[in-house]
Amino acid sequence: TEDEKKIQELLKRANGDVSKAEKLAQSQGNEELARRLREYANK
């Protein structure tokens, strides 16, 4: 999905570090994506 692409892109930029990727999403003002990242990471 589009969200998964965004999540994978963020994870790439954060070198696979979920908490960093989450902070990136939040810094972009994207709380929804940050929440999805957390769920994605907890799979």
Rank of each mutant, 00 (worst) to 15 (best):
D3W: 15
N42A: 14
N42V: 10
K20G: 05
K43I: 10
E9D: 10
K6T: 12
Y40I: 07
R36K: 14
S27R: 09
E2K: 07
Q26Y: 12
G16D: 03
L11K: 00
E2V: 10
K23S: 08
I7N: 01
D3E: 14
E4T: 09
K5W: 14
K43A: 12
D3C: 15
R35P: 01
S27A: 14
Q26D: 04
K20E: 10
L33V: 04
R36W: 07
Q28K: 04
Y40F: 08
L37T: 01
D17V: 05
K20S: 06
L11T: 00
R38K: 06
A21G: 02
G29L: 03
L37R: 01
E39Y: 06
R36N: 04
E9A: 09
Y40M: 11
K6D: 14
L37K: 00
K5R: 13
Y40D: 01
E31C: 14
L33I: 06
R35K: 12
Y40S: 03
A41Y: 13
N42T: 12
G16H: 05
S19I: 12
L33K: 00
G29P: 02
K23A: 13
A21S: 01
Q8L: 14
E9M: 09
A25F: 02
S19N: 12
E9N: 07
N15V: 03
N42H: 08
T1P: 12
N42R: 13
S27H: 08
T1Y: 13
R36F: 06
K23L: 11
S19F: 12
Y40A: 03
A25I: 04
Q8W: 15
N30L: 15
E32W: 12
K6F: 13
Q28R: 05
L11I: 10
R35D: 05
G16Y: 14
E32K: 06
E31A: 11
D3I: 15
G29V: 03
N42Q: 13
R36H: 06
K43C: 09
E39S: 05
K23W: 12
E22H: 07
L24V: 04
R13W: 15
K43F: 11
E32P: 04
R36V: 06
S19R: 14
K20R: 11
E31N: 09
D3G: 06
A21N: 00
E39Q: 07
K6N: 09
I7D: 01
Q28L: 14
E31W: 15
K20W: 10
K20M: 13
N30F: 13
D3L: 15
Q28E: 15
L37C: 03
Q8K: 13
K5A: 12
E32S: 08
A34Y: 04
S19H: 13
D17F: 04
E39L: 06
E9L: 08
E22Q: 08
R38N: 03
R38D: 00
K12E: 08
L37H: 00
R35G: 05
N30E: 11
V18G: 03
E39F: 05
D17N: 08
K5L: 12
L10N: 00
R13D: 06
E2F: 13
